[in-house]
């Protein structure tokens, strides 16, 4: 199963709508990095509104994706992390340090614009 990656100008938009199994998560990591390379994207919004569980493994994959994208010169904002997911992550002791977040897709795009266009 592949997660669709949408292009919007300089940005890439990803909305994760499926149950994230490990294989899908890894495939997504690969697809996203290729897409950044292809399109020379500067900003990425990953929307997690429909994700109702993130365990430490998936958290690591997401954290890695963010770090790798940053290395390739693209800023990443995670949006729509649900309260229940945030609480679970914090209780597990998983902190997504240095990762930018926003409430929803709209605010995520705003945040990218502010950072990239001043």
């Amino acid at each position: 199963m592949r997660i669709p990656i949408l292009k919007l100008g300089n940005y890439l938009l990803i909305s994760i709508q499926v149950e994230l199994d490990d294989q899908t998560a890894l495939l997504f990591q690969e697809d996203l990095l290729n897409k950044i390379h292809q399109e020379g994207s500067q900003g990425i919004v990953i929307d997690l509104t429909s994700v109702d569980m993130i365990d430490s493994y998936i958290a690591k994959v997401i954290g890695d994706v963010v770090e790798m994208s940053n290395l390739m010169g693209a800023k990443v904002v995670l949006t729509g992390i649900q309260p229940a997911v945030a609480i679970t992550l914090v209780e597990m002791g998983v902190s997504l340090n240095g990762v930018q977040t926003a409430l929803d897709l709209e605010q995520g795009l705003e945040k990218l614009q502010q950072e990239l266009e001043g």
Partner: peptide, 12 residues
């Protein structure tokens, strides 16, 4: 501290 971490995760 935990609360503020969770707040940051949801995007505030």
């Amino acid at each position: 501290i935990k609360a503020s971490q969770a707040v940051q995760l949801v995007g505030a």
